[in-house]
Computed example of a mutant assay.
Amino acid sequence: MQVRNSSSRYGAVSIFMHWGVALTVFSLFGLGLWMVGLDYYDPWRKAGPDLHKSIGLVLLAVMLLRVLWRFVSPPPPALASYGPLTRLGAKLGHLALYLGLFAVMIAGYLISTADGVGIPVFGLFEVPALVSNLPDQADLAGVIHLWLAWGVVVFAGLHALAALKHHFIDHDATLMRMLGRKA
């Protein structure tokens, strides 16, 4: 399989980042929902959020690399069978997913740094608290983080349904291209 994207399909780097981000987002969502229900004496009460934050910061780095990769290796053009509204919808949908993901991660960062303390990443290094002590920072960022996370997960589910629609109803190569197969 090719490393870079071509005019007919995605390359290994794009495919790996796409599916890796998808798996990570859904895993973080599940972990987040699970950890907020932990009681005070649960041994995961500290470990769960620490893991969630560490994975979230690694995801932020991967997303930054993913945006950079789109400039280094542009995605294949939309299929010729797409009409103008489908092309526009695809562009706007991808933009919404990217912006939503970055907004969720920024809100998560603002929750974690509200008290002016940095965020340790798997105990290897610490991301400093650059923004802290804003009025109601943790509470407001927490509400935003929760709603954006729901929005991203629902929108990602719709994104998956659209890919399945292209595959099973339209019989086009949209899904196959993201699986590394030729259009």
Rank of each mutant, 00 (worst) to 15 (best):
V153C: 14
E126C: 01
D139E: 13
R177A: 15
S6C: 09
F168G: 03
P43Q: 11
H52T: 00
S27R: 05
S132Y: 15
L38K: 07
L140W: 07
G116I: 00
R4C: 09
R70Q: 11
L68P: 06
G32P: 03
A107M: 00
L51E: 04
T174C: 07
R87Q: 14
A78F: 10
L101E: 08
T113N: 07
R4K: 15
Y109V: 09
V153S: 13
F122A: 13
S54R: 04
M63I: 02
W150V: 05
L95E: 01
M17G: 01
R177M: 09
A138D: 14
K165L: 08
R9S: 15
L68R: 11
F71K: 06
Y109E: 03
S6P: 01
W69H: 10
F102T: 04
K53W: 13
L140I: 07
G37N: 12
D115N: 15
I15Y: 07
V62G: 06
V121E: 09
H18N: 12
I169E: 08
G180E: 03
Q137F: 12
E126D: 12
L101S: 14
R181T: 07
A149D: 00
K165Y: 14
G142V: 00
V21D: 05
L85E: 10
E126F: 10
L97N: 06
Y10H: 15
L95Y: 12
A96Q: 03
K91M: 04
G116L: 11
G116K: 05
M17K: 00
R4S: 14
V21R: 03
G37C: 02
K46A: 14
I106H: 02
M35S: 10
H18Y: 12
L92P: 04
L33D: 02
A160S: 12
L146Q: 14
S27P: 04
L134R: 12
D170I: 00
M1W: 13
H166E: 03
L110S: 09
L175H: 10
G108Q: 04
D172T: 03
A173D: 13
R66V: 00
F155D: 02
G180V: 02
A107L: 08
S112E: 01
M178P: 02
R66F: 10
A12C: 04
F125V: 02
L164G: 10
F168A: 05
A103K: 01
